[in-house]
Simulated assay, not measured.
Amino acid sequence: MHSAARDHADIAGRADLDLVLRRFYTAAFADPLIGPFFTEIAGTSLDVHLPRITDFWERALFRTADYQRNAFAPHAALHSVEPMTAAHFGRWVQLWHATIDGLHAGPNAERAKAQGERIALAMLKRLSDGAPDTSGRQNLGFIPLAAVELRAAA
């Protein structure tokens, strides 16, 4: 763990998650690779999306929020309009790690990063199901090596 990470407190609750998610989605919306999924295809409003996704992550990390929504359905709808590939999910993981690492360090932060990777891999596998992507290559559900290298360097 680099020295700057030691200066960061762990993710302690909903207020911390709100800040992480606000920073993450601000970066994700602006990202040239994955931003269009939020801004153009889904037409997502951060103000509408943030409370829902904060509930999701609060439940995932602390089991304190009530999240009853189907997290897969909106991703499947987006995928039917514009296929999401390993590169898209890899970029999501990169931004997720960078956001968390920039704000927090500790067991909850590590769990959030690991959970994000598991969700990204599961979502990609479920969406692609080994089907060829638009380039004709077989999409086997791998996150790009850069995401793994980013995690290893943290």
Results as ranks from 00 to 15, higher is better:
residue 115 Q to F: 00
residue 77 A to Y: 05
residue 145 L to D: 14
residue 80 S to W: 08
residue 99 T to G: 01
residue 25 Y to G: 05
residue 16 D to C: 10
residue 1 M to H: 05
residue 132 P to H: 14
residue 36 P to W: 04
residue 36 P to G: 04
residue 89 F to I: 06
residue 8 H to Y: 07
residue 115 Q to I: 13
residue 142 F to W: 13
residue 141 G to P: 03
residue 84 M to L: 15
residue 127 L to M: 08
residue 106 G to W: 07
residue 47 D to P: 04
residue 116 G to M: 05
residue 134 T to V: 12
residue 24 F to T: 02
residue 54 T to C: 14
residue 40 E to K: 12
residue 1 M to T: 08
residue 14 R to T: 03
residue 70 N to M: 13
residue 124 L to V: 10
residue 11 I to E: 01
residue 134 T to Q: 11
residue 83 P to T: 10
residue 39 T to M: 03
residue 53 I to L: 15
residue 7 D to T: 04
residue 75 H to G: 08
residue 83 P to Q: 11
residue 81 V to P: 02
residue 124 L to Y: 05
residue 145 L to K: 13
residue 18 D to L: 08
residue 51 P to M: 11
residue 126 R to L: 10
residue 38 F to W: 09
residue 51 P to D: 08
residue 33 L to E: 05
residue 55 D to L: 10
residue 52 R to N: 12
residue 140 L to D: 15
residue 107 P to I: 09
residue 91 R to D: 07
residue 90 G to A: 07
residue 69 R to T: 09
residue 42 A to I: 08
residue 49 H to V: 11
residue 125 K to S: 13
residue 150 L to I: 06
residue 18 D to R: 12
residue 110 E to W: 06
residue 73 A to Y: 00
residue 52 R to Y: 07
residue 57 W to V: 03
residue 41 I to R: 10
residue 34 I to F: 02
residue 151 R to T: 07
residue 124 L to F: 08
residue 5 A to S: 09
residue 73 A to D: 12
residue 49 H to D: 09
residue 63 R to N: 15
residue 7 D to Q: 09
residue 76 A to L: 13
residue 66 D to I: 11
residue 139 N to V: 07
residue 77 A to D: 14
residue 14 R to Q: 07
residue 3 S to I: 00
residue 18 D to P: 02
residue 23 R to G: 01
residue 126 R to V: 00
residue 55 D to C: 08
residue 39 T to P: 00
residue 39 T to E: 01
residue 45 S to Q: 15
residue 27 A to R: 12
residue 143 I to V: 12
residue 11 I to R: 01
residue 34 I to L: 08
residue 103 L to T: 01
residue 10 D to I: 01
residue 54 T to R: 15
residue 146 A to T: 15
residue 135 S to P: 00
residue 16 D to H: 11
residue 24 F to W: 05
residue 12 A to K: 12
residue 8 H to F: 07
residue 109 A to P: 01
residue 37 F to R: 02
residue 142 F to V: 11
residue 46 L to I: 13
residue 152 A to I: 00
residue 29 F to Q: 02
residue 112 A to H: 04
residue 56 F to A: 05
residue 14 R to S: 03
residue 41 I to P: 02
residue 134 T to H: 11
residue 127 L to G: 04
residue 76 A to P: 00
residue 5 A to V: 00
residue 86 A to S: 15
residue 60 A to Y: 00
residue 5 A to L: 14
residue 93 V to W: 02
residue 85 T to W: 03
residue 134 T to K: 07
residue 46 L to E: 11
residue 118 R to V: 10
residue 63 R to H: 14
residue 38 F to A: 09
residue 126 R to F: 03
residue 39 T to K: 07
residue 61 L to T: 06
residue 46 L to R: 11
residue 30 A to Q: 07
residue 103 L to M: 11
residue 8 H to M: 01
residue 26 T to V: 05
residue 137 R to W: 10
residue 136 G to E: 14
residue 66 D to K: 12
residue 148 V to D: 10
residue 101 D to L: 07
residue 96 W to S: 06
residue 124 L to N: 03
residue 127 L to S: 06
residue 6 R to S: 09
residue 91 R to H: 09
residue 48 V to G: 06
residue 15 A to M: 01
residue 80 S to Q: 15
residue 65 A to H: 04
residue 63 R to G: 12
residue 50 L to C: 12
residue 57 W to C: 05
residue 107 P to C: 05
residue 55 D to T: 04
residue 25 Y to L: 06
